[in-house]
Design a protein around this nucleic acid. Structure first.
Lengths: 344, 344
DNA sequence: GACAGTCGTGCAACCGCTTGCATTAATGGC
DNA sequence: GCCATTAATGCAAGCGGTTGCACGACTGTC
């Protein structure tokens, strides 16, 4: 049915190895022969069968991309960027969704391992030990996680959280709630660590609420907890939770930002469109997707490198944050950036 | 490096064909042998190489999923549902993004054709003729398009558009703008056709503006055109455009819905969160993703079937629509449904 | 004109697995 | 106790490519 290398060879009157070389080692074949073969290949609509090629070369030209939840708006820009970058290098992308389930992550990596050149693990929920083990079975690049010996692309959320908390304390907030993310999230731990340190430095209190599911509902359901805790400002694990929280706060009769200030993280598209518009820490998701693909393709088979790429985050101040009860200091304009560049 | 069928055969003391049958035709092997082989396979961490299997069986257990724009919030729920349904049947999903480019669609289908069992073409921008031609090279299921002989999953946007326009005319709107979608979109044509007929029946005027890019910016930039056209109500090709339009209208000093009513299509997550909350036609995207996968797996190799699955759409009335200048009739409560079920 | 070097091509093994056929052993009917 | 079945396994070809090696035809050198 499908046209194979043999059909092209027959049509061109050469051996299949010559056809093969025409595509994978053109310099080895006589220019005349080459153009004749190419003409026949074109005419017949021949495309090399990648699976067959992979069988012998070991390179599939496929990449696995594993995310916790495709429908979480944080991921699509990353997926899109990764896919486009991969295709630029003639690779295809398998996308898999693990529903925030660590066990499923492992299973999917294993299932994909044989048919990809590597796997991009975005915001994994697995343990470090398991990731290290898997990286022995298939080249891995993790995004939003730091593990010694595993190539990684990390967005500097620690800095983002610091600046967000500084923003809040400078507005006079003295009691800040932190909405934690899902269990197993490295990012969530980083945020917590950094926010905690920063709050202490500014002699503000940090009340941690969580872990929570990283969704709108996750934010909505803790609105009461936030009010009960007496916090006048909140830093949420991500924008979705922040937006859900705002909904919950408004429903409970609290005003945002007059009564409670809310800061999200990620700067998803949504955040510009809600009312009030969300103040948030922008993370360069598209850049992360591209960088992760580049890293995977660059490192190829030499696993266990210490290459880490750091991407900068920035505070985008919109309408969901305002004055708190305490004295406020003038904001440092250097930290406020409207549109983000990327540093490595 | 990787463990192959030979390693398992050696460990179990049987021929590789017995190992092969243990996995692909278990009834042909003695239960004792089978469990011994399975034990050794498990111990060694053996997983059959799918590429090698595909080479001989012709089945890859992979599916291609091609969308115009992963970052457009309409698609992720569909991708997520398709991926999960595919995995339920032990298939993996290649996701490709074509940036709304018809030529790229063709290229991607061809590139993927050899390594998938079929391709899901979601909201394709290609011509029917090209789709028919491609369907001869690889099994195809189209979503949101009707082509004779090609299996399809279509959301009944015609009915959705009809009910949306009826909603507007019953509120007293007599001059309605329709924001068209991208060139090549079957859905856009369906909406236009249906809206046009419905408007005529209600003796309202329909002003078509477009084609437009199906994005927030696409809606934002035509706000002036809408006002200039003197329309008091708008039906947009999708929610993203509707939301952009509302932004544009508000920026231009028009109130929504007091001065202009706006209806979107899709009911993306965003639409519940903007202010005003968007009235929109809900399309069952997740169900479409599942149905498309089921269809592809069911039809297998018998291309050219006429199987079409129709999914129902529903009007969700929120806050972006209100009274128009003309006389209004009471809304038909039967058409107003808050949460959607799915019919086939 | 003999010889070494280069270039272009063919040959055949092989990647990991499936599968039709052959082979062997065990079973049951008479 | 013999023969026909049936069950379980082995054998080997082949899926569509790639690649090390061998070989023949030129080329240039002395």
């Amino acid at each position: 049915m499908a046209v194979t290398i043999r059909d092209v060879a027959r049509a061109s009157g050469v051996h299949i190895s010559t056809v093969s070389r025409t595509f994978s080692a053109p310099h080895l074949v006589n220019p005349n022969t080459r153009s004749r073969v190419l003409a026949h290949a074109e005419e017949l609509g021949y495309r090399p069968n990648r699976a067959a090629r992979a069988l012998i070369t070991g390179r599939t030209y496929n990449i696995g991309l594993i995310v916790a939840d495709i429908a979480n708006p944080f991921f699509p820009p990353l997926i899109k960027a990764a896919e486009s970058q991969a295709r630029r290098h003639d690779h295809h992308i398998f996308v898999a969704d693990t529903n925030e389930d660590a066990a499923l992550e492992e299973e999917v990596v294993r299932a994909l391992a044989k048919q990809v050149d590597g796997v991009l693990l975005v915001s994994p929920r697995m343990s470090n030990a398991l990731i290290e083990q898997l990286s022995r079975e298939v080249p891995l690049v993790v995004v939003n996680r730091q593990i010694a010996g595993i190539p990684a692309v990390v967005m500097d959320v620690a800095r983002g959280a610091r600046i967000a908390v500084e923003h809040l304390t400078s507005l006079g907030h003295r009691r800040i709630a932190l909405l934690g993310g899902p269990r197993g999230s490295w990012t969530s731990r980083e945020i917590r660590r950094s926010a905690s340190t920063t709050a202490r430095t500014a002699s503000a209190e940090l009340v941690v609420i969580g872990p929570n599911p990283p969704t709108e509902v996750g934010g909505l359901t803790v609105a009461q907890d936030v009010l009960r805790a007496g916090a006048t400002a909140v830093l949420a694990y991500n924008d979705l939770m922040a937006i859900g929280l705002i909904e919950g706060l408004l429903a409970a009769g609290a005003r945002v930002p007059e009564d409670v200030s809310v800061v999200g993280i990620d700067d998803i598209m949504l955040s510009r469109l809600t009312r009030p518009k969300l103040t948030t820490v922008a993370t360069p998701t598209a850049a992360a997707g591209r960088a992760a693909v580049d890293m995977l393709l660059a490192h190829g088979d030499d696993r266990r490198t210490n290459a880490h790429i750091y991407l900068q985050t920035e505070l985008v101040i919109r309408d969901s944050t305002g004055r708190g009860p305490g004295p406020h200091s003038p904001a440092d304009p250097g930290d406020v950036i409207a549109h983000g560049g990327v540093a490595s």
